[in-house]
C-alpha cells in the first residue's frame, strides 16, 4: 500500500458512489412518471440484444486478428458455444463446453 488506509477507503467510496450513480440515473429520471414513456418501453425491448452483441465484441476486443493465432481460438470457441446452445439449449453445457475447448486451444494448440 502506497497510500494510507483512510485514503484508500475514500477512493473506494468515490468509485462505489459513481458506479451506483451510473446505474441509478435512468430510475431517477423516470421514477416520477407513473406510465413509462413508450419510447423507453421500446428501448427496453430492443437495447438488450444490441447491448449483448456489443458485450461479445467487448470480450474479444483485445484479440489481434492480424497476428498468430489470428483470433482462431475465439472464433472456434464462440461458434461451438452457439452451436451447442442451439442444439441442447442448456446454459451450463454451452458455457462449460465452450470454455474448456477455449482453454485447450490457447494452452495446448495455439
Amino acid at each position: 500500500m502506497i497510500i494510507s488506509a483512510s485514503q484508500s477507503i475514500i477512493i473506494i467510496t468515490v468509485i462505489a458512489l459513481v458506479t451506483f450513480f451510473t446505474r441509478a440515473v435512468p430510475f431517477l429520471v423516470f421514477s416520477s412518471h407513473n406510465e413509462t414513456p413508450k419510447y423507453i418501453v421500446y428501448l427496453g425491448r430492443v437495447l438488450p440484444p444490441a447491448v449483448i452483441g456489443m458485450l461479445i465484441v467487448y470480450c474479444v476486443k483485445n484479440v489481434r486478428i492480424t497476428e498468430i493465432p489470428y483470433g482462431i481460438p475465439e472464433i472456434i470457441s464462440i461458434a461451438i458455444v452457439a452451436v451447442l446452445h442451439v442444439w441442447k439449449r442448456n446454459n451450463l453445457i454451452s458455457i462449460l463446453g465452450g470454455t474448456l475447448i477455449y482453454m485447450f486451444l490457447v494452452q495446448a494448440v495455439f
Binding site: 440484444p49 449483448i52 461479445i56 452457439a82 477455449y102
Partner: peptide, 13 residues
Amino acid sequence: FAMTALFVVIFVE
C-alpha cells in the same frame, strides 16, 4: 472465456 460464453449464450437465446 466463461464470461464470453455467457454472453454468447444469452445472445443466442
